[in-house]
Design a protein around this nucleic acid. Structure first.
Lengths: 146, 146
DNA sequence: CCTTGACCTGAACTCAGGTTTAGGTGTTAT
DNA sequence: ATAACACCTAAACCTGAGTTCAGGTCAAGG
């Protein structure tokens, strides 16, 4: 069992955030001894799931919903599965989008390297969109077109 | 040249957001005819870069900084390159994190599929962390340990 | 003419996700 | 025993990124 301060350190989170999560109902049924929160294995796994669901784009209120489902038992397996499937699809789409962003950034890095070497953007600008080096062109097209 | 409404449609953004971006200085030197904003190719490319930099984790004020560098000419190539390199590193890290999130979600999907098939979590819980099917174990470990 | 629709502005409002503050409790080192 | 810590609460505050509102301009169509 851990205190809030230990968990804060373990997860590199401010204590205030953990208290905020608790107040939002993200640790239903967490143990306390004379008012002091006691984080067990269940709460640590909850916290891992919270971070996961947050990064997958879920809001706090929907994470609470999930935690409530967990306390309701086996009857809510379908909802929980559906939630994870939805978030999984979300994240897969997000990965595609982020890869486009990365390609744009790669292109811009290349662009400014050229511009710096040339002392101006004229030459590199004139290469867009069809005289680019092969790899850069691939990035450019992934970032721009559909 | 496009009106704000046309650009809103092209980029699937509310008109109010475009005006907000403009007010934040994200389109320095945008043309106007009798008060009405005229978006040209420059502004469209700016908008693409804005979306890219936003998704890479940059705040509006730092995007404005970049736009200002662009109007300052060749002297700011180094800053602009450095910005894109930093954001690129950011996004690469973010992709790693998001892939961990995805692995957690995959694991949880599998977990609840098993739980639903079994009518309970006992069996599947008992398999954690070393009796999991190979692929699931890989996801589990990527999502959990370092 | 006069109404409709697309544009304009500045200022106030919203919302999520925390963070900070003020005031208090309880246990442990000096 | 008293100071220093780590913990507690409720409530106010903050920030970024927009959105909404109130009031106004202007061009085109019936």
């Amino acid at each position: 069992m851990y205190t809030i301060g230990q968990v804060a350190e373990l997860f590199h989170l401010p204590v205030s955030t953990l208290r905020y999560y608790d107040k939002q109902g993200l640790f239903p049924g967490m143990a306390r001894t004379s008012g002091i929160r006691r984080f067990g294995e269940g709460e640590l796994e909850a916290l891992r799931v919270i971070e996961c669901l947050k990064k997958s784009g879920l809001e706090i209120r929907d994470i609470r919903q999930f935690m409530d489902w967990c306390t309701e038992g086996a009857a809510t397996y379908p909802q929980r599965l559906e939630l994870f499937q939805r978030q999984r699809a979300n994240v897969e789409e997000e990965l595609v989008r982020l890869n486009k962003v990365l390609d744009m950034l790669k292109f811009k890095c290349w662009y400014y390297e050229q511009a710096m070497a040339d002392g101006g953007e004229e030459r590199v600008k004139s290469m867009i969109p069809h005289q680019l080096p092969e790899e850069i062109q691939a990035s450019y097209q992934n970032a721009h077109g559909e």
